[in-house]
Design a protein around this nucleic acid. Structure first.
Lengths: 337, 337
DNA sequence: TTGTACGCGTTATCAG
DNA sequence: CTGATAACGCGTACAA
């Protein structure tokens, strides 16, 4: 292997490794000339310190581990972009991993990342994760952790999420103001923290407008490939006049099912997805959406984590940060109503 | 820090670290009883070898580095899923990184990953990467590398891509068979390897049906946020009767622009995207697409890489692997014609 | 200002 | 069968 080490430089310049080492970092009392020599030589040979050796020595890695349920999801991939932007600026590398909505893989991945001395963890919990004790243990070992999007009430850890309650409220209220009264809600799995918040926002809007809550109009869908259609079919039996879908995937599932039954959405069904769908404008009629500030969530989460890592946050104020969502009303949805 | 090491076990059991180490791996001549003791104690304390120390010692990490231009792209995220499935099964961890279509970031990321002793690299080149000499150097240092999707003719490295030529040919031929003659092609940046292949497939189809190639009908679009619309506008001046978009993003850009001008796609313009758009069925009319076998590309690429890593591939046959695409013809697109 | 020696956690070699 | 020792690359107390 011809990767060059501090030792090579030392030998070439007739110096000790410690002198070279010092010359390359703190100029902690080192002869200017020696330093110049070393730095120049190192430069010329493209010397790069071995991060593995440094990690072993210093017990850290300048790496932030990011674990998301799945990457094939515009929301998460955008959050990651936000994370990277901040982390990169502050001198950290970001390693990305997927839990594939599996508790076991989440656990294994986190263990691996921690074993590799990541300086901190940014996690969005898998839908199957109920036992978060492994995270609590890491937290007790002083490992900086920040949750985003999918947090856990069983964990006293800082979290950054969209304001799901307000977003769901806005979506539902919009539908109500368009004259709808029987609004079906296709929800994400109840085990996910934000499912409750979205449901609460939905219920609160109904309440505000004096519409009774009908549990038959609410169904949770999992992540299986063909789970949405039967659920939408069931909901259709309740003859809803609108749909509030709690995610991109569910919104698409709704649309597909409605299309299959040839139900014209504008006249009879209004649909709002809690989404980042980029093609919402292309649909006919365009879909009104609640957009999550994914980029910002990532940026804020990364910022908080790095503050924790660098000890700028003495008090770990674990009060959740809520980032405002945005209701995007597409023209002809309104027209259609 | 209360991470337990081999040394802790040795002390507790009055053994030397070397004995413990041996007991934990090769049972190479070790007393059965001693071994049992060690293993049991290690189990009880949840001992996990420090992967950083092992990497330093063995100069490898059982980690595969994956670098893609961007994660917020269904094609890439699905490829990654394919990669993970295979790598996981064969005992490797996968670390995911983005180059954000920047040569500099690609370079920096690869250097970082290599410095951390990744056992191999799976890369899809950024659109700005023209100088691949840094990869050639790594290759010469015997680092296993496999390119996927975006390869480079300047690099004699195994690659796995979709059969872009055949896919583009099939798409174009389909449009021709639907009676179109002036087929506009919105292409990805010419610097990307597969751009040429797709263009060639397009041209070959025209040729086969005796349609003259008109360079005014072909435009390349970059990755800027507002690049597609003006290009589509320009193309519209050439009064095309169909569009062949070379990617998801471009297809969406086409659709958006056409919708803006209120051009009814079915009657006047047929559109085919070289894509993985999941909502193609929802569009009105549904869009016919050429689907890339993303998952399979990832699986094959990961398989080849691991074969290389494990030396099963003595001869580095760098002949590119082409995976067949699938033309998905949506019913009413045909009807519309 | 520079060099020596040690440790981070692990494995491999060589004695015993 | 087991233990001492060296080595992977680096940083740092301690000595000079």
């Amino acid at each position: 292997m011809d990767t060059i080490t501090i030792k090579d430089i030392a030998r070439a310049l007739n110096l000790s490794t410690s002198t070279v080492s010092r010359a390359l970092r703190d100029s902690y009392e080192i002869n200017a000339e020696t330093k110049r020599q070393v730095v120049e030589y190192a430069e010329r040979l493209h010397y790069r310190p071995n991060p593995i050796a440094v990690s072993l020595k210093e017990n850290r890695s300048r790496v932030i581990g990011v674990i998301v349920p799945q990457i094939a999801n515009l929301f998460f991939s955008q959050v990651i972009n936000g994370i990277e932007a901040v982390a990169y600026n502050r001198g950290y590398h970001v390693s990305i991993f997927q839990s594939h909505e599996s508790y076991e893989r989440e656990l294994a991945t986190v263990q691996q990342v921690v074993a590799r001395k990541a300086d901190g963890l940014l996690i969005s919990l898998s839908s199957n994760t109920v036992d978060v004790s492994y995270l609590r243990q890491l937290q007790e070992k002083k490992l900086p952790i920040v949750l985003f999007d999918r947090a856990s009430k069983d964990l006293d850890v800082p979290s950054v999420t969209a304001d799901n309650f307000a977003g769901a409220f806005a979506a539902t209220e919009h539908l109500i103001q368009m004259g709808r009264r029987r609004i079906a809600h296709v929800a994400i799995p109840a085990s996910i923290s934000i499912a409750q918040e979205r449901l609460a926002g939905y219920r609160f809007a109904l309440e505000k407008y004096g519409i009774p809550y009908d549990e038959n109009l609410v169904r949770h869908a999992g992540f299986g490939p063909n789970e949405v259609e039967p659920i939408v079919n069931d909901l259709l039996i309740q003859s809803p006049d609108a749909f509030f879908a709690a995610s991109d995937r569910l919104a698409i599932g709704c649309l597909a099912t409605l299309k299959k039954w040839n139900i014209a959405i504008p006249g009879q069904i209004a649909l709002i997805g809690f989404t980042n769908i980029t093609v919402a404008d292309l649909l006919d009629p365009p879909m009104t959406t609640v957009e999550q500030p994914a980029l910002e969530i990532g940026q804020v989460a990364a910022g908080r984590l790095i503050d924790l890592i660098e000890g700028k946050q003495k008090t770990v104020s674990s009060d959740p940060v809520k980032i405002a969502t945005r209701l995007v009303i597409r023209a002809s949805t309104q027209a259609g109503l």
